[in-house]
Amino acid sequence: MKVDLLKMVEYGGCSAKISPKQLEEILKYLPLPKDPNILVDIDTQDDAGVYRINDELALVLTTDFFPPVCSDPYEFGQIAAANSISDVYAMGGDPVLALNIMMFPADRLPMEAYAEILKGGFDKATEAGVRIIGGHTIDDFPPKYGLAVVGYVHPKRIIANTGAKPGDYLILTKPLGTGIIMAGQRLGISTDGDVAEAKSLMKQLNNTGAGVMKKYSIRGATDITGFGLAGHALKMAKASRVSLNIEMKKIPLIGSTYKLVDEGCIPGASFRNLEYAEKDFSFSPDLDYNLKMVAFDAQTSGGLLICAPDDKTEQILTDLKDVGLTESSLIGQVTEQKEKLIYMYN
């Protein structure tokens, strides 16, 4: 029996995240634990928490899970695992161990699909050098899958949202458009080629990009997921107390992403992200509306947004392309903090 996971969900992948606005409201009431060994927590809007064990070692902890973003169970497992592990890479860490988190409707889907999802996750984790040593499954509909991941990082080599410095250039390592292309697929208006490209990008680990960041001792970066390029850039600007200029036309897009947006294929998550973030944005008056909405498109397992020092930017770009991230692009710059946090241009 051929299983189509996409038929089960309205919002797949990172599009299914709760609205950032609601999340912020709720987290206000949750006290943050105080402990000098907590090096990074939600306070800086980061991708993962970091806990110091000793002067040489800190643990990176993160978890991520979501409903299907594609039809095939094995591919869904690969994408979910790549996405979960990505947060460790974005913090400059090496992922080591993981636990499966699974929700699966045992009475509505064949158990083969369950096994396929786990197999996809296992294979992707193995590629990343991560050992999955357990997990937990709940009977629930629609299915959801992801990992809780533990990684190692040297306490002095953490890469975080707080590390953007005025003068740095912004480099993005993957093209945008996974949310739009996959929404279009559900409506039958995305081409097979575009869907294949989107899936292959979502499965791609951010390990190679992370390797380049380590080589150049990068201190500021994040990975682009559910809040879109715009949302994650904003988190970085806030945490680093800087402003960012972003030039949308310099950003590579997957296949016919622009055409789909122009036809109105704008996923609901883009509007949620826009609503949360826009008060901190200045949009250039002539900004192309379609490109603006692309900036807010929720990415699943998106690329790294790297703050590169001026004098190393060219070398970093060359290195990123050499390790296979051929669409890495310089998309903007960090400035001193201004009235707004993000200035977006065509």
Partner: peptide, 8 residues
Amino acid sequence: LCPAPLIA
């Protein structure tokens, strides 16, 4: 469901 109405 979204975004089909917007496309229409």
